[in-house]
Simulated scan of single mutants.
Amino acid sequence: MKKIFVGMMAILSIATYAQNQRFSYEYKFVRDSAEKDKSETEIMLLNVFSKGSQFYSKDVFESDSILNAEFKKQSGGLDHHIDLSKFKSKGKVRYQVEKNYPDYSVNFFTNLGSIEYMIQESRNQNWKILPEKEKVGEFNTQKATCDYVGRIWTAWFTTDIPIQDGPHKFHGLPGLIVKLEDKTKSHIFELKGVRKFDDKEEWKSFKDKERYEPLIILNDKKYKKTYLDNRADPNKGLRNLLAEGGKFEMKDASGKIMDSNQIMKDREKKQKETNKRNNNVLELDLLK
């Protein structure tokens, strides 16, 4: 009965306060735990609808929108050679998170190589609400903590915005999360803007967007294995493609076709070097 009551309150809060609102968060993060002074910043958007919320990078969304428009424009002509050489991708945080109201089921969308996955979250956020209060920006907030995805988190939430939601996968407090940081302060989200957007804009799930390859759906336990396999062997997906009869080729600046074996060796070396530096992922339990 308590869960049903909480769900009804969540629907009422959203219906009366925050349909079609956008919350902009500044996300500061450190990729390499050995270089904590080298933080990066990305603007993340939390769009709230009556059916649920969606969380993603502003730069990545805008960049992908331009890319898709250019792809459709070029592919619509008689010449099927698509030139995207002048296109420059923006944004570093390439995942999306979707929460469905009122049960707040969470789906996480990400790519490993050329394959896109939807991961169904099963881990719980057991918040401990504390008496401490603090002013964060213009909001009066209260403190809460939880142990989640391999990190100890501190959240500051405000009941002035009665939405049980927040950045990334976080939710379940009696108000919007205004600030969120892990114990090492290497992953920090802070609310920077609130605005209402067009009421005519409707909820559309990320899983229903147009794709050229199928979306692979996994639970979080199976995804962890897939994630670790991909880190250990970055070319696994490409080799599977070749084994199934697929082909790929790349050309150098002079137009000469490059050796595919050398491409794969270079790709594996580069990706493993990147993985070594990227050792401070937000969901730290993926590496344990």
Results as ranks from 00 to 15, higher is better:
residue 208 D to A: 07
residue 250 M to E: 07
residue 21 Q to K: 14
residue 103 D to Y: 08
residue 54 Q to D: 07
residue 6 V to N: 06
residue 48 V to D: 00
residue 45 L to G: 01
residue 151 R to T: 12
residue 81 H to K: 15
residue 246 G to T: 15
residue 16 T to C: 07
residue 144 A to P: 09
residue 114 S to A: 08
residue 261 N to V: 11
residue 28 K to I: 00
residue 175 G to V: 03
residue 252 D to W: 12
residue 66 I to K: 01
residue 91 G to L: 00
residue 228 L to A: 05
residue 282 L to P: 04
residue 107 N to V: 04
residue 270 K to A: 15
residue 117 Y to E: 04
residue 39 S to W: 02
residue 178 V to C: 04
residue 131 P to K: 09
residue 258 M to E: 14
residue 105 S to E: 04
residue 147 D to L: 11
residue 80 H to S: 10
residue 194 V to P: 07
residue 287 L to M: 14
residue 192 K to Y: 08
residue 9 M to F: 11
residue 249 E to D: 14
residue 131 P to Y: 10
residue 215 L to E: 05
residue 27 Y to Q: 04
residue 53 S to V: 03
residue 263 I to W: 10
residue 225 K to G: 02
residue 23 F to P: 03
residue 64 D to N: 03
residue 242 L to R: 15
residue 271 Q to C: 06
residue 163 I to E: 00
residue 227 Y to D: 00
residue 278 N to G: 07
residue 152 I to V: 13
residue 239 R to I: 13
residue 129 I to K: 03
residue 14 I to F: 10
residue 265 K to S: 08
residue 129 I to S: 06
residue 11 I to S: 12
residue 222 K to E: 06
residue 126 N to G: 11
residue 132 E to L: 13
residue 153 W to V: 12
residue 240 N to M: 12
residue 285 D to V: 14
residue 184 T to A: 12
residue 62 E to S: 04
residue 187 H to P: 07
residue 137 G to E: 02
residue 88 K to S: 00
residue 270 K to G: 06
residue 242 L to D: 12
residue 235 N to D: 05
residue 18 A to P: 10
residue 179 K to W: 06
residue 140 N to Q: 08
residue 277 R to V: 06
residue 88 K to A: 03
residue 233 D to C: 01
residue 136 V to S: 11
residue 158 T to V: 13
residue 230 N to K: 06
residue 31 R to G: 12
residue 99 K to H: 09
residue 135 K to A: 10
residue 175 G to K: 04
residue 211 R to W: 05
residue 203 W to H: 03
residue 47 N to S: 12
residue 31 R to V: 14
